[in-house]
């Protein structure tokens, strides 16, 4: 068999949100045809999930009868839509001149190595995301890094593991919900 079978188990949270999305679609007034609801439905998806997961696009594709390739096209066209989940802890590393000269690049390497992700990516557990920013306005204390609202200054690579460990403790993931779902299409959606 090919590996096209993308049947994933959906957690309770996703199922709940898909049901809400379903209600939203059912409650929307169809003006011309169902397809014209797409923009509004994508907005609602982002509001519900915080981003637009492939599972939701597949769900919408079946609900509105729009091929998923075109939904993906629209979702990636508008900057407003986000296709990857926001990390719980967003790391912003400054790559302004001062920070760069002071060794910011080595800090970035260390972050990538520890988290095994690149810039603009999010760890599989959704805890960390690495972003690059330009000048956080405290060049005298470079290199500078921000994690959500906390600022870290005069960073050296050796300090990175301890900082990450702190947030790992804070952000212990909640217990996984049990999956129950009805398969529709390649992905899954909640019962109709």
């Amino acid at each position: 068999m090919t590996k096209t079978a993308k049947t994933k188990e959906l957690d309770k949270d996703t199922q709940k949100k898909l049901l809400q999305l379903n209600d939203f679609i059912a409650g929307s007034k169809v003006l011309k045809d169902k397809q014209s609801l797409l923009m509004g439905v994508l907005h609602q998806t982002q509001t519900l999930f915080g981003y637009i997961p492939a599972t939701a696009m597949d769900f919408i594709s079946h609900k509105l009868g729009v091929p998923s390739a075109h939904i993906y096209g629209m979702a990636t066209f508008y900057n407003y839509f986000q296709l990857t989940p926001k990390a719980r802890y967003q790391i912003y590393l400054c790559k302004g001149t001062a920070c760069y000269v002071a060794g910011g690049a080595r800090v970035l390497d260390k972050l990538k190595e520890e988290l095994r992700i690149g810039v603009d990516e999010v760890t599989a557990d959704g805890l960390f995301g690495i972003n690059i920013t330009r000048c956080l306005g405290c060049c005298g204390l470079s290199p500078v890094m921000q994690v959500n609202d906390d600022i870290y200054v005069r960073l050296v690579p050796e300090k990175v593991p301890a900082i990450l460990a702190k947030y790992r403790r804070l952000g212990q993931p909640k217990k996984k919900a049990k999956a129950t779902a009805v398969a529709v299409g390649g992905f899954e959606q909640p019962g109709k």
Binding site: T2, K3, T4, P67, A69, Y72, G73, F77
Partner: peptide, 25 residues
Amino acid sequence: NALSYAHRGFRTTVTPAFGLNQQES
């Protein structure tokens, strides 16, 4: 409808849904 435009500007590309590869589409 296996293919569609995705992204915009310089990054515009033609791809299957969700950036899947051709085989998975």
